[in-house]
Nucleic acid binder design. Structure first.
Lengths: 111, 111
DNA sequence: CAGAATCCTATGTGATACTG
DNA sequence: CAGTATCACATAGGATTCTG
């Protein structure tokens, strides 16, 4: 059994998933999308510090792995591009919650 | 709140933990140690494909973050170095199980 | 047996500027 | 608004050799 992420083949499912969640901004993006469907610009304002290039790149990663879904609508002469979590993406949320609580208890953290 | 791993500061707990579990061989090492306390050589045979350099490096990472504990005993003129999971490490196992099951259902995987 | 030290390469991430 | 494209750098990870 192996797992394909971004044309890289992993032999370990934990490593594969961690290499999605561990990429910069990815967890924050998922977290921001947990309740709202958001437009690109909204997301960029929500995920502060993240450049457009990185936002697009990580969204592509999430879309390619069916965690996030993208919808584009033509509006006048512009485009409205919105993003939201897929079924798989939603199922990631409880896992992330356990990761957060483990990290808060067991990683060395400052305030 | 921020999280320190290997002198790198993360602002996101999921990203921080993922950057431990996502490093190569790390999840496999933890998995191998879940029941047995193992010696260095044993571990190296168990985690096939992992070079000594990588094994040491990732064990150091795990030890520095109190996930794995190392014990050294002098034996004759040699040293017996054994590794086992800490309390924190043991609590990682159920999280990893949910990650495995999510990955098997939702990542594109071949056999 | 259990490491440490070196060298090398690919990838992740950021800064910046351009487009329709 | 929602992207693309280009340049630059630090880190991950592997191969290899050395040590007590």
């Amino acid at each position: 059994m192996h797992y394909n992420i971004d044309e890289i083949i992993y032999e370990c499912p934990v490593e594969a998933l961690s290499n999605i969640l561990g990429k910069k901004w990815v967890a924050t993006i998922i977290w921001e999308l947990q309740e709202n469907r958001m437009r690109f610009g909204e997301l960029q304002r929500a995920v502060e510090g993240c450049t457009k290039k990185m936002l697009i790149q990580q969204l592509d990663l999430l879309i390619n792995n069916d965690i996030v879904i993208n919808e584009k609508k033509a509006i006048n002469n512009s485009v409205e591009s919105t993003y939201y979590l897929s079924e798989a993406g939603l199922k990631l949320l409880p896992i992330m919650e356990t990761m957060i609580s483990w990290s808060n208890k067991n990683l060395s953290c400052d305030k």
